[in-house]
């Protein structure tokens, strides 16, 4: 079931979009147009692209706060993502969410959550609903290596195994949770092994190789769909930037970073596919135009109106109004 060259080029161009979008987001943060926490996905592109392209349009994905890439790969328009980062009214959550809470119901991208591990049981709930309704949709829940240390991860997987729910947990093992290396936070460092005892099929894959990720994800998605069975896929990857814009990442060595840069998921696939210089330039130009347009769109979009402050608190707008607002 080898992927066609065309498909592989498609994966490459999506990774390139995520890479350039994130680089631009970092730059816009430096200009003060994006504020608060902003966690870039640079280095991990193969994980979101490999996994999410194995899903159908009707399937679901959910992630943590390092989720701009997942949103883009799910098809959320880059302009709406950038506008949300800018806190504009045209953003995915009309400026209410921000970088950590990009979500788009239309694209079945459930977000965008800031409490480490908190997204996993929501994914479980969607998997439950899928089986309940019998619509054979599948859920991918992305989490970090450090999130694996939250109890709710094990609670969720136990229920998924107990009730045969189509939940695939994708551990993006980038080696660190903030400044803490995996081995300093987890007694078992091969993270996929931690779920084996729960009766969940678990495996790992080279998360810098999008083709391998995609192949593993396809298998697990098919299994989840056909047999309604959960799985864990640990993707071993690396983030090239700090944890967030505020982190200079002094806890790791230059040599380590350089070694991973040599496995750059975008450039290594470009080289493996022997993309010609002209073709690469064209791909870069195409992506640049999309990213430029996203920034222009965000720049030109209006701020949310003050009247939005008390909106979206209850669907029925019967908020428990204070004595004097």
């Amino acid at each position: 079931m080898a992927l066609s060259r065309e498909t592989q080029i498609g994966l490459l161009s999506r990774m390139l979009l995520v890479r350039r979008f994130e680089e631009r987001a970092g730059q816009q943060y430096g200009l003060g147009k994006i504020n608060g926490f902003c966690h870039l996905y640079i280095g991990q592109e193969a994980v979101a692209v490999g996994c999410l392209t194995a899903l159908d349009k009707d399937d679901y994905a959910i992630s943590g706060y390092r989720e701009h890439g997942h949103a883009l790969v799910r098809g959320v328009p880059p302009g709406a993502v950038m506008a949300e980062l800018f806190g504009k009214a045209t953003g995915t959550s009309r400026g209410k969410g921000g970088s950590m809470h990009i979500m788009s119901a239309e694209h079945r991208f459930l977000g965008g959550y800031g409490i480490v591990g908190g997204q996993v049981p929501l994914g479980l709930g969607y998997a439950f609903a899928s089986k309940y309704r019998g619509d054979s949709t599948v859920v991918q829940a992305f989490l970090g290596d450090a999130a694996v240390n939250q109890g709710v991860y094990y609670e969720s997987l136990n229920m998924a195994a107990l009730w045969n729910l189509p939940l695939i947990c994708i551990i993006e093992n980038n080696g660190y949770g903030m400044g803490t290396a995996v081995a300093r936070a987890s007694a078992v460092t091969e993270l996929y092994k931690k779920s084996e005892g729960l009766g969940v099929h678990s495996e790992w894959v080279d998360g810098m190789d999008v083709i391998k990720v995609r192949e593993a994800a396809e298998r697990l998605v098919e299994r989840a769909r056909e047999e309604s069975k959960p799985a864990v896929l640990e993707c071993r990857t690396y983030r090239f930037r700090g944890h967030s814009m505020a982190d200079p990442a002094t806890y790791r060595t230059k040599e380590e970073l350089e070694a991973y840069r040599k496995q750059d998921p975008v450039l290594s696939l470009r080289d493996r596919l022997k993309i010609t210089e002209d073709k690469w330039k064209a791909m870069e130009a195409e992506v640049k135009a999309v990213v430029d347009a996203s920034v222009k769109f965000a720049d030109e979009s209006p701020e949310p109106d003050a009247s939005e402050l008390m909106q979206y608190i209850h669907p029925t707008n019967d908020n428990n109004a204070p004595e004097r607002a």
């Binding site: 949300e84 400026g95 209410k96 949310p304 939005e308 402050l309």
Partner: peptide
């Protein structure tokens, strides 16, 4: 009396 919005304004 509501969740905190992200937008600066």
């Amino acid at each position: 009396d509501g969740p905190m919005p992200y937008a600066k304004s």
